[in-house]
Computed example of a mutant assay.
Amino acid sequence: MVKHFYKGTGIIISFIILAILFLCSLAFGYTSTNFQTVFDTYRAFDGSAEQVVIQTMRMPRAIIATLVGACLAVSGAIMQALTRNPMASPGILGINAGASLSVVLGMTLFSVYSLEGFMWLSFLGAFVAAISVFVLGSMGREGLTKLKLTMAGVVLSSLFSSITTGLLILDDNRLESVMFWMSGSVEGRKLELVVPVLPFVVLGLFMAMAMSGKINALLVGEDVAKGLGQKTWLVKGMGLLVVVFLSGSAVAMAGPIGFVGLIIPHIVRGFVGIDYRWVMPYCAILGAGLMLAADIASRFILFPTEVPVGVATAVVGAPFFIYLARRGVMKG
């Protein structure tokens, strides 16, 4: 009971921190504004340039960063649980790269530029990449192992990225406009991007929370889960569907952004343990917070000029990935 009280209190504190970061995202940027300007924008809008920037540029940017961070962190937690691989994440296992390749193929070969088109292409690419990684990682006498799964993800991610780059080079008219999106960014995004994917984001997050208890049983062991009457194949299938929904939605809104789905689940499990009934909500809140913090940092803290938020997450995520590899978590 005491542990639950502290974990519940932690949820409230995390949510307060998220709210503060969201407010900072609205208040700080190249256009000189402050918290008072933000409050005045929604309390007494006067049409000034500063208030227009907050309403039309920073608010959509903050909302999209929040949703993308939650999606990536929760999907990373699910992938790490179902594969029992602490290196698993949508970026490391090639899910983001597959979704990106699908979008670029649609733009290059079929001239797809609609928001709905991007959404469905992202989902298709994420699904194909997920299936491909699991099939490739399961080949051989040993079956699916952590090392094989990670290597399959790295290889396929490199392959998808190379094909994507080749397509863009062949069609250099689209290169400049697409490369900024490919690096992962929430700058200049509009709320129209959220509308078609929001149902899938909500459904994916709801399914993730609902299946958290079943994931706990799987973590004890697949045989134990079967002994408790669980259909493990159904849990894994639902988990894969959730990963596709959340990863595909994130790529559709902001392009491929790495390392959020790798970092946050490890941090959360360090605080609250492996009970996924707590891991899931914590990942959603802290993942959103990390994306907002990275977006704020990418504007004027880490670099002399603004860079895509995917660069900021990589600055933190790459050393974290090396740290995990040096701990030997890829064994088995």
Rank of each mutant, 00 (worst) to 15 (best):
D223G: 00
Q230P: 13
G273P: 09
D275N: 14
T232A: 12
R277I: 06
A254R: 00
S247V: 06
M280H: 11
A254I: 01
L286V: 13
I264T: 02
A250W: 05
M238L: 12
S247A: 15
A250S: 15
D275G: 08
L302E: 06
S249E: 03
W233K: 15
R299T: 11
W278Y: 15
L262K: 05
G261I: 06
V244W: 03
L262I: 11
S298G: 10
F300P: 00
K236V: 10
F271A: 12
G289Q: 13
L241Q: 09
D223A: 00
G270Y: 08
A293H: 12
A293E: 01
R299D: 14
M253L: 15
P281C: 09
L234D: 13
T232D: 11
Y282T: 13
K226T: 01
R269A: 00
M253E: 05
L262T: 05
A288V: 08
L241H: 08
V243D: 00
V251M: 02
M253Y: 01
G239S: 14
V244E: 07
M280D: 13
L246G: 04
G273Y: 03
L240K: 06
F245D: 11
K236Q: 14
L286K: 07
I267H: 07
Y276A: 08
M253I: 03
R277K: 15
V243F: 04
R299L: 11
G237N: 02
G229M: 07
I263A: 02
I263C: 03
Y276N: 15
A293I: 10
V279N: 13
R277P: 06
G221D: 00
V243G: 02
F300D: 08
S298E: 09
W233C: 06
L246M: 07
